[in-house]
Design a protein around this nucleic acid. Structure first.
Lengths: 348, 348
DNA sequence: GCGTGTAGTGACATCGGTGTCATGACATCG
DNA sequence: CGATGTCATGACACCGATGTCACTACACGC
């Protein structure tokens, strides 16, 4: 492998001049430059990043830790997709920058993370992005001397910069649209109560009611997330048994909505004629395939990835603080025909 | 960032001794070792890969080029999945090795490949794996001085080591199973005729017939792959109009099989009672969801990734030649209820 | 004509590890 | 007891870039 010395000798100049041509550092004579460039291409010269890093301490590397690849969706299972989208967004930004993105996959073992970080440190990455599989708290240990970190889809308690989906606004927007369509009794089958997403979305649900001056009926909100079907069947039963049952039911995700279609069909309840349904995630393999297609909300994963990348670049450049409140990125409601207006409604 | 000199000073030894502790190079006294290790953890020392690479010219890096991330499946579209599985397989192997995998995504622009290779060369990767999105020929230019390359899911004409799915054997196995189940008239709706997969699988289809001593009816093989539905409808029409129509129809992939379900249902033909169907790919989101579930073949993408990785390691270690015929990896038939036996058959 | 500035170039040290070789202290063997 | 070998360690050069400084021309302004 040719070195800068070989090029220098071949071009009849000093190594430093070759370096100047490489980096456009300082003025170089027209003829000299040409001679150097010729020599470089003749020898197939590629500068050694290692040597460059040693001197300048700038590796040009950004590390990214994710489970995106090992969590590949299978069975039409949407887990793993958010991470992939976030990684796409990150790539989007770094593809245009003079930084190289090193992607490392945890292989689903979060205990492997410290070893990945250590490898990244050996390579002297200038920054690190950690992508989580779902919106949650994390404890990403940063020791002094570690490169700056940006968290995507997760957050910690020590103020590490973090980019999160705005679950609250998303649910708020969705419910507001339902209210605008005339719905007044809005059921909500939530994900597990311990999840951050559930807490935030429930707040969004409340916000929308408060904004519209609608009373809040706690019986409308039912936890219904389990692997078996029982909790959902029970929760649906409770909703339908209410004196004033819901005219629309929101679900914690699109899979739950899909199951709800089945449950309602079993009971002979037509969607959306008798009950409207809304999902969450806009997992298109489900939302577009169901009949009727599913109204849902999309979380802005690609955009989160982009923002995480830009944030990290700003921190590295020193134009942004290395710690702040999380940034929350909202996403759009995707309106499809699983929701109809309600007779006598103001809107629709 | 602490250096080996800082550690040496803190431990009261020479830098070289610290290096020996790091690499377990040469015997080091018990007490000395402990003193060095203490100093390292006290200072949070992480060795610089750059410096190591300079001296030893071993970067410990393996480059991987793929479109896996940017080709993320969406709409339940299975494109992009093969690449992800291959990358998973590659990771599987390198996760256990003292090599770091650098994944670079093309972002769907194959013209960006040379620039990725150049970046990898700057980082002095010890080897390169190129993963293609579908089985095809490629022209991955290797210049002298480039690191060794292994191709996955593609091949070239200059003998670059290559790991391919064994489309021929796969189709052979599938058709042999169909014959064993009593089928004698086996329709085949192929992918585009120009694809390598189609050529190879058609050979496999022929092999199975020859092996069983069955005559080959060219009318049974129909190209039917387009984005619009017309060619498939026409091809199906031709098959059904034959004096002896097929008792089972093989499809070029699972999506085609899914469409075939629809076409047959429209004509009132029951699957599998009147016609059996077989797909290809075992794209489970489709194959397991259809009713009846689809008999299909699975291409061994993860295994291909593993073999590509091991192959590259062998080449780097010098225990394998850097050029040979492609390795073809077979995959299993996945038998589900879309195929029934035929009355009076020997088997089933 | 002399100081000042700038284009163009090279010598040399340096970044942080590791390979090579040398050295001293003991242990082992014939 | 001297030759030989092994353990444990250090001195020093070197990998391939780049930062610093110095130097030579030549142009420009006064």
């Amino acid at each position: 492998m040719a070195t800068i010395y070989d090029v220098a000798k071949a071009a009849g100049v000093s190594p430093k001049t070759v370096s100047r041509v490489l980096n456009d550092d300082a003025p170089v004579g027209r003829d000299t430059r040409k001679a150097v460039q010729d020599a470089m291409s003749r020898l197939g010269y590629v500068p050694s990043n290692a040597a460059r890093v040693m001197r300048s301490n700038k590796s040009g590397l950004i590390g990214l830790i994710t489970g995106a690849i090992s969590n590949t969706p299978d069975h039409g299972d949407p887990r793993g997709l958010p991470e992939l989208y976030i990684v796409q967004g990150v790539q989007d930004v770094f593809g245009r920058e003079a930084k190289t993105l090193m992607i490392s996959d945890t292989g689903g073992h979060s205990d492997r993370v410290p070893s990945l970080v250590s490898t990244f440190r050996q390579h002297r990455v200038e920054g690190l992005i950690y992508v989580a599989d779902y919106h949650r708290q994390t404890r990403f240990e940063v020791r002094p001397g570690d490169p700056p970190v940006v968290l995507a889809n997760c957050y910690d308690t020590v103020g590490t910069p973090s980019i999160l989906p705005d679950d609250r606004i998303c649910q708020h927007r969705l419910v507001a649209r339902l209210i605008a369509a005339g719905h007044r009794r809005i059921g909500y089958l939530t994900l597990g109560a311990s999840m951050d997403a559930t807490r935030l979305r429930t707040e969004g649900y409340r916000d929308a009611h408060a904004e519209a001056g609608l009373p809040l009926d706690p019986a409308m909100i039912q936890e219904a997330y389990r692997d078996d079907h029982a909790p959902m069947t029970a929760a649906l039963g409770r909703l339908l048994a209410l004196p004033e049952p819901p005219t629309v039911i929101c679900c914690g995700n699109d899979e739950m909505a899909m199951r709800l279609y089945g449950l309602l069909r079993t009971r002979g309840i037509e969607v959306p004629q008798r009950i409207s349904i809304a999902g969450f995630d806009n997992y298109r393999a489900i939302a577009e395939t169901l009949f009727p297609p599913l109204t849902t909300v999309e979380l802005p994963y690609r955009e989160m990835g982009r923002q995480a990348a830009r944030r990290l670049l700003d921190i590295i450049a020193g134009t942004a603080p290395a710690a702040t409140d999380p940034v929350r990125v909202p996403g759009p409601v995707v309106w499809r025909s699983s929701v109809t207006g309600v007779a006598g409604a103001a809107g629709t």
